[in-house]
Design a protein around this nucleic acid. Structure first.
Length: 352
DNA sequence: AATACGGGGCA
DNA sequence: TGCCCAGTATT
């Protein structure tokens, strides 16, 4: 075991990629990076991390911001509850810990948006606590290296590899480096397809390699098919202004803004009839000019969205729903929106 | 234990 | 297309 960890750390120090959140021991920066990197590739998350740290230098800066500011900075990254929980957690740290990041595992794990992986990662990377941070990379590497054929989404699998990896770590003082190393190994060598076994520092002791089981491990049984969802949007223009609504807190794209819309069974509904339904006949049909429509396909992890965006202009509004907000086009860039909304704003040329 | 929750890159 | 990414919260 001593031999293994020594080999691993030596490999890591020579070959690891340089990343800004590994050049610091500031728990705030490490925390931000770990939240951003949840289910997100380094390449995609890096610019967001730099912008975040650039705008909010400390946890208190973040705590004192508006949620919309935080969501705006998160725009396009997905899983927006991460941003809302990040903001909530910052307020907790600011208020109950007076801006000082908690330094023990249990207090870290209590923060909203921080689960077992993230708490372990912060504990190891910021405070060098003895723990194992199990993410997707570590699961894949451990399943192969230890030859564990329990499906990786089972609790028993995580229990098993955590126990074994903790034993590998042993009494080493390098929990920080060890955790960085196994994650980096999974990300760069022990990849999902075509792992680079020839370059792997742990090839000699790898169970999967010795049995030629790299392609059948890890065992993954889950697979949910995205369900179809049809939505008709209305991009309603009044001279240089647009109408938008904010989504509610308990749905996809929570708290983000978008054009008024309605879920439908089929996209081919009469748009004027649909608009009357949504507004309660608030808009005089003679006041409506139809400027065109465009269809969009948008893939989420759990939904296959087909959207139709109608471009209307109206002269005068009637008694529109209270939740509708009219914004000048200049203000449309200030509100947090989802990717589909970005595409639709481009279609109707909100900014000319 | 299962499901909701984004978006992008790549075979 | 389908897979998977430095996962978590909710049911």
């Amino acid at each position: 075991m001593v031999r293994v960890i020594q080999t691993l750390l030596t490999w890591y120090q020579e070959y690891h990629r340089k990343m800004p959140w590994r050049e610091t021991s500031d728990p705030y920066k490490i925390w931000i990076s770990e939240i951003i990197l949840q289910q997100t590739r380094v390449q995609q998350g890096l610019p967001y991390y730099l912008r975040f740290i650039g705008k909010f230098h400390t946890v208190s800066d973040l705590a004192l911001a508006d949620e919309s500011e935080v969501l705006k900075l998160w725009q396009g990254l997905g899983y927006y509850s991460r941003a809302r929980n990040l903001h909530k957690a910052a307020k907790i740290i600011h208020q109950t810990f007076h801006g000082r990041f908690p330094e023990n595992f249990d207090e870290i794990a209590l923060l909203p948006g921080v689960g077992d992986y993230t708490a372990s990662a912060i504990a190891a990377f910021a405070f060098n606590l003895k723990t194992v941070a199990v993410d997707g990379n570590v699961k894949r590497f451990a399943a192969r290296w230890l030859g564990v054929d329990i499906p990786i989404e089972k609790q028993l699998f995580v229990q098993r590899i955590k126990h074994e990896l903790l034993e590998v770590l042993g009494d080493s003082p390098d929990s920080n480096l060890f955790n960085q190393a196994i994650i980096e190994l999974g990300a760069t060598i022990c990849t999902p397809t075509n792992p680079s076994c020839s370059r792997c520092p742990l090839q000699e002791t790898c169970v999967a390699y010795s049995n030629n089981h790299q392609t059948i491990l890890p065992v993954i049984t889950k697979k949910l098919k995205p369900q179809p969802l049809n939505i008709v949007f209305f991009a309603i223009q009044q001279l240089d202004c647009w109408w938008v609504v904010q989504r509610d807190e308990s749905s996809v794209w929570a708290n983000l803004y978008e054009f008024p819309n309605r879920e439908v069974n089929a996209l081919e509904m009469d748009p004027v009839v649909l608009l009357d339904e949504i507004t309660g006949n608030a808009v005089d049909s003679k006041s409506i000019k139809i400027l065109g429509f465009k269809d969009f396909k948008h893939q989420l992890s759990h939904r296959s969205i087909q959207a139709r965006c109608w471009h209307f202009s109206i002269e005068v509004e009637g008694d529109l729903p209270k939740s509708w907000v009219r914004l000048p086009s200049a203000a449309m860039g200030e509100i947090p929106v989802h990717r589909l909304m970005e595409k639709m704003m481009e279609y109707v040329r909100v900014w000319k």
